[in-house]
Design a protein around this nucleic acid. Structure first.
Lengths: 241, 241
DNA sequence: ATACTTAAAGTAAAAAGTACTATAAGTAAA
DNA sequence: TTTACTTATAGTACTTTTTACTTTAAGTAT
């Protein structure tokens, strides 16, 4: 790359060209929820470095590719899913975090509402699996660190934003919602009070449907009313659980 | 850079070396507080591109420098300050955000407890000034965007974490604290109730000192008790205002 | 018909939040 | 030295929210 001389300013130790030597990647912490457990999607690497180790899904960013596109791409390649909730949470750039060179990685977390997706094996991944976030294998690179920060961010975010709904199917019962939050936050709610609190927020749209194929009284199904939430948020409402 | 052939994996469009072409920078949103107003520190550029425009303080990261070090460096060079509260909040990487090439920038926000620091002119900055966050000039690059995100992050964070204290001198009165929060959150508190609420949290250490040189009854001074806060946080306490 | 499970509504007591009042402690001006 | 003025600090009555618990309803399975 040629940089116009007018752009040169005095303080740099190196010629300006030599600052354009960073590699950039994205890594996605993909969260799922199944039967009371928060899961994360990991792949087993089939390429050096760290061949055989479990890792987050991620990839180098193309020089002409935006970060979010890169992250969406990674997820779509592995799961076939588009339009998934995805949020940048932190950037990891330790000098020695990657054995090949200076690679800075931008961490995204995404939430999928079913763990039934069939992860697709790729040239660099032997297999893909969902792991309970409390029972994780050893990870490649600094992915342990990235994953921890991702989990922390998720746990923090679900308390103040209605992000958690992304982990449930679009139609859910109040008990399912409660159990999700119990898994996320690590403590129990009183059933009656949880129901009262969440309904009074007015961000759930009751459906004229009930849960099917249960051997007891079926519960009503609800949908998260995003439009309503956005409107309430503008008036100063803030989601808290 | 030479990359071992064993690291090559099939999917890449380009030779692996050609992914190491990114520039990396840090930009700091430096917040200050003075007489009821939240301020941000901007510099007027004295170098291309955007010569003459106001901008956030920031710089390219050296190839062997960690992100946080780069951010601390930038701040120290301009203000002479070390050990300032600093937090990474978002990474901006649009393909076309920088006219010279692909430069990804990591945004940090920092909070300083006085705006009396004498910003130091540097080779690329004509002057430095504190601006009220509600009355900002036009900014260089995508700094408007970075700054907005920084402000949003700050306003969000101060509601759930005791971050706000970083904007006050280490000794402060309850009224000063209240006024800071009124500026941050944009609404008024009842004096008596604010005092009661914050004191009952047990995270303020009362000092045996009072505010001096005031022409009325002087208020007691307090310190934020970080140790205590950390301990309470572990027990499940969470700061909310 | 009966037992069992979960849904859903209700309720009383406790806790927290709100609006407001009263008094104390200082400075400054008369 | 008195008086006016400003802000600190404590207190209080009232309202709202939260919490812990009880009751009843609605379904399935035997």
């Amino acid at each position: 790359m040629k940089i116009p001389s007018s752009y040169y300013i005095s303080d740099y130790k190196l010629p300006l060209e030599e600052y354009f030597v960073f590699g950039l990647s994205v890594d996605c912490v993909v969260f799922g929820y199944h039967e009371g457990e928060i899961k994360v999607l990991l792949v087993q690497r089939d390429a050096e470095p760290f061949k055989g180790h479990w890792a987050l899904i991620g990839d180098l960013v193309e020089p002409d590719q935006n970060l979010r596109d890169a992250a969406n791409n990674v997820l779509e390649k592995l799961t076939g899913l588009k339009n998934i909730y995805m949020k940048q949470f932190f950037t990891f750039g330790s000098v020695d975090r990657h054995p090949v060179g200076r690679v800075v990685t931008v961490g995204y977390f995404s939430l999928v509402n079913s763990i039934d997706y069939h992860p697709i094996a790729s040239s660099w991944a032997k297999s893909a699996e969902w792991f309970n976030i409390n029972d994780l294998p050893e990870l490649a690179f600094d992915h342990q660190n990235i994953l921890s920060k991702g989990i922390e961010t998720l746990k923090n975010e679900v308390r103040h934003k209605p992000t958690g709904f992304e982990l449930l199917p679009s139609k859910f019962t109040l008990l399912e919602l409660q159990q999700l939050y119990e898994a996320l936050l690590g403590y129990k709610f009183d059933k009656s009070n949880f129901r009262k609190k969440i309904l009074e927020m007015n961000i759930l749209k009751p459906l004229n449907e009930v849960k099917e194929k249960v051997s007891h009284r079926p519960a009503k199904l609800f949908k998260f009313d995003e439009k309503r939430y956005r409107a309430l948020e503008k008036e100063g409402f803030s989601f808290e659980l």
